[in-house]
């Protein structure tokens, strides 16, 4: 299958989404990624039984941190699909790119500098 998907997406492979850590997601945002998403296996189909459920809990935790920092939590997301669903992968990639584009660039790279109040 030669499916095309948004060129803005950079893929980082992990053996199982259970390996994805809160810090991986946070560091990506810290380093200026506009968004990060985790593509895990379908629920109930993790080779390591519950890696994808653990990943979802971590994604949810990072969303909470972003919310506290007044950054759109939608910049971090979790999706579930099987490795046989190539078309779905491309669809999700485009969906994510679209959604992030609508949110605009990350405030981490475009700071909202507080203007000094006039004396």
């Amino acid at each position: 299958m030669r499916l095309s998907y948004s060129a803005d997406i950079k893929i980082i492979q992990v053996p199982c989404t259970g390996r994805v850590d809160i810090l991986h997601l946070l560091n990506a945002i810290e380093d200026g990624a506009d968004g990060v998403y985790v593509a895990g296996c379908l629920e109930g189909e993790c080779h390591y039984i519950e890696g994808n459920f653990k990943a979802r809990r971590k994604v949810d935790h990072v969303k909470k941190i972003l919310l506290e920092l007044k950054i759109e939590p939608e910049r971090v997301e979790m999706y579930n699909l099987s490795s046989a669903q190539g078309a779905r992968f491309a669809q999700i990639a485009n969906e994510v790119a679209e959604k992030i584009r609508a949110l605009g660039p990350t405030p981490v790279r475009t700071p909202t500098v507080q203007k000094p109040t006039a004396p």
Binding site: N27, E30, P107, V108, P111, Q114
Partner: peptide
């Protein structure tokens, strides 16, 4: 782990402020 998470969170917040 928690030190690293707090570090990253504070860095994000302060980059956002441009400080």
């Amino acid at each position: 782990k928690e030190v690293e998470i707090l570090t990253s969170s504070l860095k994000i917040a302060r980059k956002k402020l441009g400080k």
